[in-house]
């Protein structure tokens, strides 16, 4: 019991004293996960809208595959990216393995099906009416796309946050492609896993608290923005 209490006290001091190693890990985690979500959103948003609105043969099959891929285990993604980026792999010449770039690639691949699936589902349910209204009011295809993004901005933001949550909380993919190298590819989840195995709970607790605070902060911001007129 004392060990846990001491762990919390030490964790608290690490946070308030701006422990360099702790904050380096936090910043790296945020940079990697935010980059992955931003890159993913660049093609998930237009593609999800297009998929949601377009009628074509084989759409049902594609949507089933998409929904199924939303829950792909992160270690499988990690393994796939490792094989691609390893020295003998097709992209081995880039020398990206065990770098933050490899972690961003892995997390981008990990969150893309989730974000794409959620955006597709939202647009499929309610997008057609907005598209029709936009067209009737004289908007062209690009203006309709912008209109749909504006109308669903809070839904899309929540979907992107779901993607960010998946990215920042996963451990398998970044561990495999990043290697958990101190000062280079160590992020919050891989550090917690490592420190736990070493029995050093103070750093784990501090990072756990920070992860919870990030989650809480993100939720407060989203729900405040979701209904601005209230």
């Amino acid at each position: 019991m004392n060990e846990i209490a001491n762990g919390f006290i030490k964790a608290f001091w690490m946070i308030v004293s701006f422990d360099p190693e702790l904050y380096e890990i936090i910043i790296r985690s945020l940079v990697v996960s935010l980059s992955a979500v931003m890159i993913s959103s660049l093609f998930c948003v237009p593609l999800g809208i297009w998929l949601g609105l377009k009628r074509f043969k084989g759409k049902q099959l594609i949507s089933r595959l998409l929904y199924a891929s939303m829950s792909t285990p992160s270690v499988v993604i990690g393994l796939l990216i490792l094989l691609m980026l390893s020295r003998r792999g097709p992209f081995g010449f880039l020398g990206l393995l065990y770098t933050p770039s490899a972690m961003i690639i892995a997390q981008t691949v990990l969150v893309t099906p989730l974000v794409l699936g959620l955006i597709y589902h939202t647009v499929k349910q309610r997008g057609r009416q907005i598209q029709q209204e936009g067209l009737l009011l004289g908007a062209d295809s690009f203006q309709v796309m912008i209109l749909i993004i504006r109308e669903f901005k809070m839904d899309f933001l929540v979907h992107l946050i779901a993607g960010f949550s998946r990215a920042i909380s996963e451990v398998g993919a970044v561990m495999i492609v990043g290697g958990n190298i101190k000062g280079s590819t160590r992020v919050m989840t891989t550090t917690i896993a490592l420190m736990n195995s070493m029995g050093e709970y103070d750093m784990s607790i501090a990072l756990g608290v920070v992860l919870l605070l990030i989650s809480l902060l993100v939720n407060i911001v989203v729900y405040k923005e979701a209904e601005p007129w209230k």
């Binding site: 907005i130 209204e133 009737l136 009011l137 504006r150």
Partner: peptide, 11 residues
């Protein structure tokens, strides 16, 4: 121009 029974007004 078209107006339906339940028009969609933008948010």
């Amino acid at each position: 121009g078209m107006v339906s029974q339940k028009p969609y007004l933008f948010k």
